[in-house]
């Protein structure tokens, strides 16, 4: 669907351009996080291969690989989530929305994006509070190499905050909404 038709469908006019620079910064941060996420996945693969080799060829498993990998998993998932939001490919059951007439469909999509943005923002806030608690009381992980837990948990509020902003931006500017849902 073309951008114009999308706007028409949403029953909206083109948005005030003063938000455009804000969106550009948001998209830049999102895309940067996405690349970091891809690099971290590369690191995870490398660490595992190294671990297998060390364990089976040199009989010397490391103490830190496993733990590091699980920390990396948190970062890689949460840093990629905002880009998925930007592309609007988070899984949704959209048969109902698709049945609606164009005008209502646009409205509904805006409302759904707004709702998703708000709940993600709420989750960012909740998990940020928790990360602050972990920081204040200096709580360590229960893993072999104990590190402050907030080092890892901080990616959760960061990821959800960016996801929230992306969905809010979709709600504010329907031209940013792509329509193909990617599927698992």
């Amino acid at each position: 669907m073309s951008a114009e038709r999308k706007i028409e469908a949403a029953g909206e006019t083109r948005l005030p351009s003063r938000l455009t620079p804000v969106f550009r910064v948001l998209d830049w941060v999102t895309s940067f996080a996405y690349r970091v996420s891809a690099l971290i996945l590369l690191a995870i693969t490398a660490l595992y291969c190294m671990e297998i080799a060390l364990r089976y060829f040199f009989l010397s498993p490391t103490l830190w690989t496993r733990d590091t990998i699980t920390y990396f998993l948190c970062a890689t998932l949460l840093l990629a989530a905002p880009q998925v939001a930007r592309d609007n490919t988070h899984v949704a059951i959209n048969i109902f929305v698709e049945m609606m007439p164009q005008r209502i469909k646009g409205r509904m999509e805006t409302i759904l994006a707004l709702l998703t943005g708000l709940i993600s923002g709420g989750v960012a806030w909740i998990t940020a509070q928790d990360t602050i608690r972990l920081f204040d009381s200096n709580i360590l992980t229960l893993t072999t190499i104990a590190v402050p837990k907030w080092w890892i948990s901080i990616f959760i509020p960061i990821g959800f905050a960016l996801v929230a902003l992306q969905f809010l931006s979709l709600a504010l500017d329907p031209t940013r909404m792509g329509h193909d849902k990617r599927q698992v």
Binding site: L41, T70, L73, I126, D130, T131
Partner: peptide, 23 residues
């Protein structure tokens, strides 16, 4: 109960089993 909620997310995204998925 929000701590419980935060922990449930943390537990999942730091679970070694799930590393299998991206790989």
């Amino acid at each position: 109960g929000f701590g419980l909620f935060s922990n449930s997310i943390y537990e999942t995204v730091t679970s070694e089993t799930f590393v299998t998925i991206p790989l």
